[in-house]
């Protein structure tokens, strides 16, 4: 369990004090993938750096598995950091070292291992990220995706109990992004490793995360399970982040709202019902005929979900009775 207890961080800028983080609290369960999303300048970069104290909060505490790291002295903190992996947007590999030597670097810092042990561990890690064949190359000879794999191998070297990802896929093309996200999911499953990531991309959250916190102007404006936040975003920032990535659902905007004269229902399918002909079944039962306005079918992490917006053209029962009827089929229905 990782607990962030009301941390704040201010920067001085031109004589004014600007809050990068304003009383932020988070609880991150062990073994989960926790996403922090926000626009640039929302404070997410500062927040993730508070988790290994690359940035020290002005107030508040950060505890990792019950240990308050804000109380550690410098030496103890350095030791603790050896077991907190971090992956960076721009990879931050040492140009002067080969791939293998880059992965070996944190092992050298930690000490206590013979060269043979370190080499064995490096081979193990390179196999894990699929870079055995590039062992002796320099970072400059690798593609972006390969560099990030080196970054991930390096971050895992000292058997961390927490992996921090600082916009790990933001510098990569979409295909490579998918591959890196798959690798992170794999690592999370295989090693049971807790991962905290920051991103500005809702797709990353949807594909990878179990829980999410939405950050805006240094404050957490919404947090919860990804499924809940995606299906029922409460805060305007969350809604607009979803809308920008084409994942905003269930709102009939502006002019369309006025042009549709019939009552509108929103159906939300999560899990098994997504794959069943629920609308057809209910339609036959209660004589419901609809005009489909919009629909999505997608997946959040490994859970399929769908949403439909439909105008009710005809129905044997009153529209207000529909939610209860759909609920029997495991589908949420809201009358808009």
């Amino acid at each position: 369990m990782i607990e962030v207890q009301s941390i704040s961080k201010h920067y001085q800028h031109g004589g004014k004090s600007i809050a990068a983080l304003d009383n932020v609290s988070l609880q991150i369960a062990s073994g989960e993938i926790y996403g922090i999303i926000g626009r640039s300048g929302a404070g997410k970069s500062t927040l993730i750096r508070c988790l290994n104290l690359l940035e020290r909060p002005d107030s508040g505490h950060v505890s990792l598995h019950g240990e308050d790291i804000t109380r550690l002295d410098e030496r103890a903190l350095q030791q603790r950091r050896q077991r907190i992996g971090m992956v960076f947007q721009h990879f931050n590999l040492l140009r002067s070292r080969t791939v293998a030597a880059n992965v070996r670097f944190p092992l050298e810092l930690a000490g206590g291992q013979s060269p043979a042990q370190m080499d064995a561990r490096v081979d193990e890690l390179l196999a894990l990220v699929g870079l055995q064949d590039h062992k002796h190359k320099r970072p400059s000879q690798l593609s972006g995706g390969q560099k990030q794999r080196v970054g991930i191998a390096r971050a895992l070297a000292n058997h961390p109990d927490l992996l921090l990802c600082d916009e790990a896929t933001s510098a990569l093309d979409p295909e490579t992004t998918d591959a890196i996200l798959a690798l992170l999911a794999d690592i999370n499953r295989q090693l049971g490793l807790t991962i905290v990531l920051i991103t500005h991309d809702m797709r990353v959250i949807r594909q990878l995360c179990d829980s999410v916190a939405v950050l805006d102007h240094g404050r957490v404006v919404e947090q919860g399970k990804v499924l809940d936040v995606f299906l029922a975003p409460q805060h305007a920032v969350t809604q607009s982040l979803l809308a920008e990535t084409g994942m905003g659902q269930g709102a009939l905007q502006g002019i369309w709202r006025q042009r549709v004269a019939t009552p509108v229902i929103k159906l939300t399918f999560v899990g098994e019902p997504t794959l069943q002909p629920v609308l057809d079944k209910v339609g036959r039962e209660v004589g419901l005929r609809v005009n489909l306005l919009s629909g999505t079918l997608s997946e959040i992490k490994d859970t399929p979900f769908g949403q439909l917006l439909a105008g009710v053209v005809a129905s044997d029962v009153d529209v207000s009775a529909l939610p209860a009827i759909f609920a029997r089929e495991g589908v949420r229905c809201e009358v808009l």
Binding site: N52, L54, Q78, R81, M86, L93, P106, A110
Partner: peptide, 19 residues
């Protein structure tokens, strides 16, 4: 970024200078 990465791995000042 490379210096920051080293710090995140727990590097001491002497590590950062010499490595």
């Amino acid at each position: 970024g490379v210096i920051e990465a080293s710090q995140s791995m727990g590097a001491r000042l002497s590590h950062i200078v010499f490595k």
